[in-house]
């Protein structure tokens, strides 16, 4: 696919918009793609990155990623009009229709788990669902898309160091929320997902998981987790092809 725009939103956080036919296959927020960050064997494996938003008629989609290790740093050097090798869309995303018209949904993102919530939020709003966003970041400079989310619904920010918004974690904000909500959609680091499961497991709670991947399509058994109804047995789910989004309790975090 072809690079349309590529810009740094915050230190080391990049927004990359690509154009190509693949976009026509994107059906659900929360799906991801496997990105080949360079040609050749170095680095060898593709990198899983969430689809942050897509536009089928324009054949465009956007991802937001943190340039951290070898692969993502190389990806961040791609320039406009260059080609990027994308495999996807992959996996099962957020079940948008679980939140009904007139209801309120809480969207909870942590750090680089925030991006896939953007497409989700747009689709929920289009369906007449009221959305509340609770987004957690390390520090003020790491925040991105606050304005974009604010246009769709109430947006609360938490920073670990207290440099912006509420000091603490996303759960610090949620514990104090006055509004009612029936559904929670969440993506972020595993400790955050665990805290949500422990505190809000009785709600309709959907979690998007992260795991190290080989193939990304369900063939290599790298990304397997135990299921909630058989926590030590032989049943399993693959994060890449059964997930990455699961209902809370469906798999062991």
């Amino acid at each position: 696919m072809k690079v349309l725009t590529h810009k740094e939103l915050a230190p080391s956080i990049f927004e990359l918009t690509l154009q190509g036919e693949l976009v026509s296959e994107m059906k659900q927020p929360g799906q991801f793609v496997q990105v080949k960050t360079t040609e050749g064997a170095e680095p060898l494996l593709r990198r899983p990155i969430s689809i942050s938003s897509y536009n089928s008629s324009e054949k465009q989609f956007t991802m937001i990623y943190r340039a951290e290790g070898k692969g993502t740093t190389l990806l961040s050097q791609r320039k406009q009009a260059e080609a990027v090798d994308i495999l996807g869309p992959l996996g099962n995303g957020f079940p948008v229709h679980e939140a009904k018209e007139g209801e309120t949904a809480l969207l909870v993102g942590g750090g680089i788990g925030v991006p896939p919530l953007y497409q989700l939020s747009q689709m929920l709003v289009a369906n007449g669902v009221r959305v509340i966003h609770v987004l957690g970041f390390q520090t003020k400079s790491a925040i991105f898309y606050e304005k974009e989310f604010s246009e769709l619904g109430d947006t609360h920010i938490a920073t670990v160091d207290g440099s912006y918004g509420t000091k603490g974690f996303v759960t610090t904000v949620i514990d104090k929320l006055e509004q009612e909500f029936a559904t929670i959609f969440s993506c972020g680091p595993t400790p955050m997902l665990k805290a949500l499961e422990a505190g809000y497991g009785e709600k309709r709670l959907y979690l998007s998981l992260e795991e190290r991947m080989g193939c990304g399509i369900g063939a290599c058994f790298a990304c397997v987790c135990h299921t909630g109804d058989d926590p030590t047995g032989f049943s399993y789910k693959k994060v890449c092809s059964d997930g990455p989004v699961f209902r809370a309790g469906e798999v062991i975090l």
Partner: peptide, 10 residues
């Protein structure tokens, strides 16, 4: 079931 994750490393 196999080993616990992470099961792959580059």
């Amino acid at each position: 079931f196999g080993n616990p994750t992470p099961r792959v490393a580059e």
